[in-house]
């Protein structure tokens, strides 16, 4: 059998000019649970599906607020994301300390991009095994960036990475034109619906497994979890809730 000899490290090109180690790292992103991001004229939103290792364990952290004006959502190796987000926190603080200005999202994104690139050109390192969505508001308005293990960074209107994220992207592409003028609430709904589309049949979005991060022209980036997102889930998926909630309503009466 032909054995691929070109995939042992990130300093070897294949005869086609590919770097397999980097491509494998991209696969690690696809193993992570899905995260979604959208921007409008006034807001940038992240939504994420959290996993728990077992019934009784806590859920993993998917959205990390970095500075008051932005945060990141991750898919892939969480520990790599922690290294990157710590670096982003340092860089963001440095910008505030030296210039008294919040760092531009394009700037911070290209800095982690450059850092990731180094790992793909030197022996003895491995590429980061994590993808990020970076969302927030800076002097130039709301932004969403996607970061990949290869060091590629892209500015998007909407994006989704992680397991089964193609379904979310399909939803986003279909509704692409609507996002720009969306209100905050509408944008949250779109993000949750896109997220929902990437779930496998037997799964639901709940207050336990969903995270939302919101930044806006008039508000700092904030992470919303648990009961804070209950009403959004309810209003977004109300049609479905009505169908199933017959018994639920009865219980409410009882209590």
């Amino acid at each position: 059998m032909f054995r691929n000899n070109y995939d042992n490290d990130s300093v070897t090109f294949s005869p086609q000019g590919r770097i397999f180690q980097v491509e494998y790292a991209q696969e690690a992103v696809k193993q992570g649970s899905v995260v979604v991001g959208i921007v409008s004229k006034s807001h940038a939103i992240l939504a994420a599906l959290k996993r728990n290792a077992e019934e009784l364990s806590s859920y993993q952290r998917k959205i990390i607020p970095v500075d008051t004006h932005y945060g990141v959502a991750l898919a892939g190796l969480a520990s790599d994301a922690r290294v990157l987000s710590n670096f982003m926190k340092q860089q963001s603080l440095a910008s505030r300390l030296t210039y008294d200005r919040p760092i531009l999202l394009s700037e911070i994104t290209s800095r982690i991009g450059d850092r990731a690139q180094t790992n793909t050109q030197h022996y003895g390192r491995r590429p980061y095994g994590v993808g990020l969505l970076i969302a927030g508001v800076d002097a130039r308005g709301p932004h969403l960036f996607e970061f990949q293990p290869s060091g590629v960074t892209l500015e998007c209107v909407a994006g989704a990475i992680g397991a089964r994220s193609q379904m979310a992207r399909t939803y986003l592409e279909r509704n692409l034109d609507a996002f720009e003028d969306c209100s905050r609430d509408e944008l949250i709904k779109h993000a949750l619906r896109a997220l929902k589309d990437s779930l496998s049949q037997d799964k639901e979005l709940t207050v336990d497994n969903t995270s939302v991060g919101i930044g806006g022209l008039e508000e700092n980036f904030k992470l919303y979890e648990g009961q804070e997102i209950a009403s959004w889930l309810e209003t977004t998926f109300e049609n479905k809730a009505e169908g199933e909630a017959g018994g639920g309503e009865g219980m409410e009466v009882d209590s």
Binding site: T98, Y99, D100, R101, L104, D138, R140
Partner: peptide, 28 residues
């Protein structure tokens, strides 16, 4: 270095370094 977004003229960029930013830098 950083692109100025959609603006043709970099000097009219909204993210242009302000005198306040510059003063913070110089005082550091």
């Amino acid at each position: 270095y950083a692109g100025s977004g959609d603006v043709d003229d970099k000097e009219s960029d909204v993210a242009l370094m302000s005198a306040k930013n510059l003063h913070t830098y110089l005082s550091k």
